[in-house]
Each structure stands twice: as C-alpha cells, then as structure tokens.
C-alpha cells in the first residue's frame, strides 16, 4: 500500500491529547446515553443492567433495538441477529483507519482498538488523523467516548429510577447534538474535489432510507460515495 504522507508520529499527539480531542464525542455521547438509560429502565431493566448493556454491546442504535425487542418478547436469536445486522457497517471501519495509522511509534493491541470503533470515533478519527497522530491518540479518543457513554447511561438510568420527569427544552437541544457533531466533523473535510462523492453519499442515504432501514442505507451510501471518490482520484492519478 502506498502511504500518502510520511509517518512521523509526535508524542504530543498521544493518549492525553486524544482524550482532549474526544470532547466533541463526549458532548455527543452523553445525552444519547442518558436517553438510553432512561429507556432501559423504562423497559424494566435495573440501572446496573442498563450499564451492562452499554459496557458490553457499546453500539448506540443497536442497544436501543436490543432493549426494545427484548421488552416486546422477541426471540434471543432475532434480537442478536438485529444487533449484528445493525452493526455490519462497522466492517470497514477498522481496515479504513488502519490504513491511516502511523507505521512507526507505539502500537496499541488491535483487539483493544477494535472495541471502541464506533461510528462517531471513526468519523472523528477520519477527520483528524494526520501522520503526527499516534495510536495512543486514537485510544484516548475511544476512552473519552466510552467513558461518556457509560456515564450517560448510568445517569439516565438513575434519573429514570428516581422518577424524575423530563425537561423538554434541554431534551430538544440534545436531539440536535449528533447532527451538529457530524456537521462539525464534515466541515474540515469539504474540498471542491470531494463535494460530489460526499453529496452522492448523502443523497443515497436519504433516498434509500425511505425504502430500507437506516443502518442498511448508511452502509450502502458510504460505499457508493467512497467508490466514486476512489474512482475519481484514480482518474486524476492516471490509474
């Protein structure tokens, strides 16, 4: 594989910097995890069980599905199948990020890196990784995101258990956190050369989501957009 930039990891871009850089993910994850904690306890789980789901599965949308399907008495096989199907889009995240991690410098065990490879971690890393970033930076980002996910889950679960009501104003603001995060991550990636592939990806996702589940639409859209970008850059390189 040809690397696009020389690998020159900077120790300043290590675990601590990753934790700091995960602030946007913490901001995005915490309220969603609070919502999950509220839902899980509302569906009959204890706060510890809700925390267990977040700690072990650690995959936002599919956790909501898992708890909701179990609550309506779905079979274990169908619940596990649904969880796996919803996360199939993660198949490409590891190989895509590995191709951008520095060749030199300290290595983080792959089984550890794989655990924290969520949509948002992948998005942030895709938008941020440079040859100066170390693998520990990615682990720091993942640690911040995972910590926020667990903290939000237990907060939401305890709130639900305490019988507190909801706060419509704050809840409304929280619903915009993820779109705002994705927009903020997309902005630095916008170049004239990739507007068309990115637009195609967005339009494909929107169009398909009217007919098929959103997680499937996402998987197809990201592949279509990436295929177009790869084809166009190959054309420019004369391949």
């Amino acid at each position: 594989m040809t690397r696009t930039a020389p690998s020159n990891p900077d120790p300043g871009f290590g675990f601590g910097r990753g934790l700091v850089d995960s602030a946007s993910l913490i901001l995005g994850y915490f309220p969603i995890a609070v919502s999950f904690g509220l839902l899980a306890v509302g569906q009959g789980l204890s706060p510890l069980q809700a925390l267990l789901v977040s700690a072990v599965v650690y995959a936002g949308a599919s956790q909501f599905a898992l708890v909701s399907l179990l609550a309506v008495g779905a079979s274990p096989v169908s619940v596990i199948g649904a969880v796996a199907a919803m996360n199939l889009r993660h198949l490409f995240y590891g190989p895509a990020l590995l191709s951008r991690l520095p060749k030199d410098g300290g290595r983080v065990p792959r089984p550890l890196l794989a655990f924290g490879m969520t949509d948002e971690v992948f998005a942030l890393a895709s938008a941020s990784l440079t040859p100066r970033h170390t693998e520990m930076w990615l682990l720091g980002v993942q640690a911040g995101a995972y910590g926020a996910w667990l903290a939000g889950t237990i907060s939401g679960a305890l709130l639900a258990q305490a019988g507190n009501g909801r706060w419509p104003g704050i809840e409304a603001g929280l619903t915009f956190v993820l779109p705002a995060l994705f927009l903020a991550l997309l902005l630095p990636l916008l170049r004239r050369v990739n507007v068309v592939p990115l637009g195609l990806s967005a339009v494909t996702a929107l169009g398909l989501s009217r007919f098929i589940p959103g997680h499937v639409a996402l998987l197809v859209a990201m592949m279509v957009g990436a295929a177009l970008a790869a084809w166009r850059s190959g054309d420019r390189d004369g391949e």
Binding site: A123, F182, L183, A202, M222, G225
Partner: peptide, 12 residues
C-alpha cells in the same frame, strides 16, 4: 474515502 463518505451519510 470511507470516512468522509460515512460522515456525509450520517449527517444526512
């Protein structure tokens, strides 16, 4: 290209 493409789709 997968990363930027995924972000655009997630945003949409």
């Amino acid at each position: 290209a997968l990363g930027p493409s995924a972000i655009a789709a997630l945003l949409a």
